[in-house]
C-alpha cells in the first residue's frame, strides 16, 4: 500500500507501523463517574469493520508522525490521511 503522508507525500506502507482504530485518540476522562466502564470500552470493545475504517499508523521509518488513515479494509482504498495531532486537537484534546 501507499500512504499519502500529509507532510511527506506518498510513502510505502512498509515505512509505517500499524496500531488500530483511531478511536484510541478518544481516551476517556479518568475522573468521570463511569471511568472504569468507559476505559473498559476504550481498551477492549473497538469495532472491526469490513469497510471504511479510520485507523492509526505510525511513520516509524520516517518522520515519526502518527497519522489517521481512512482506509477501506475490504479494498485497501485510502480516502484520507491526516496528522493524528490535528485530529486530536479537532476532537478537543489538549494537554
Amino acid at each position: 500500500m501507499i500512504i499519502d503522508h500529509p507532510l511527506l507525500g506518498p510513502r510505502d506502507s512498509s515505512e509505517f507501523t500499524y496500531l488500530g482504530d483511531a478511536r484510541l485518540i478518544d481516551r476517556p476522562d479518568p475522573d468521570g463517574g463511569d471511568a472504569a466502564a468507559a476505559f473498559y470500552q476504550y481498551a477492549y470493545l473497538r469495532d472491526n469493520p469490513a469497510g471504511w475504517h479510520r485507523e492509526l499508523w505510525f511513520h516509524e521509518a520516517g518522520d515519526r508522525s502518527w497519522l489517521v488513515v481512512t482506509r477501506n479494509t475490504l479494498t485497501h482504498e485510502i480516502s484520507k490521511v491526516e496528522l493524528a495531532s490535528d485530529v486530536a486537537r479537532a476532537q478537543g484534546r489538549s494537554k
Binding site: T17, L19, L24, I25, R27, L56, F58, E60, R64, S65, W66, L83, A84, S85, V87, A88, R89, R93, S94, K95
Partner: peptide, 18 residues
C-alpha cells in the same frame, strides 16, 4: 522501539498541546 512509539502516541494523540 515500542516504548518510543507509545510515547509518541501519547504525545501526538492524547496530549497534542503539551
Amino acid at each position: 522501539l515500542p516504548v518510543y512509539r507509545h510515547m509518541e502516541f501519547v504525545r501526538q494523540c492524547l496530549v497534542p498541546d503539551m
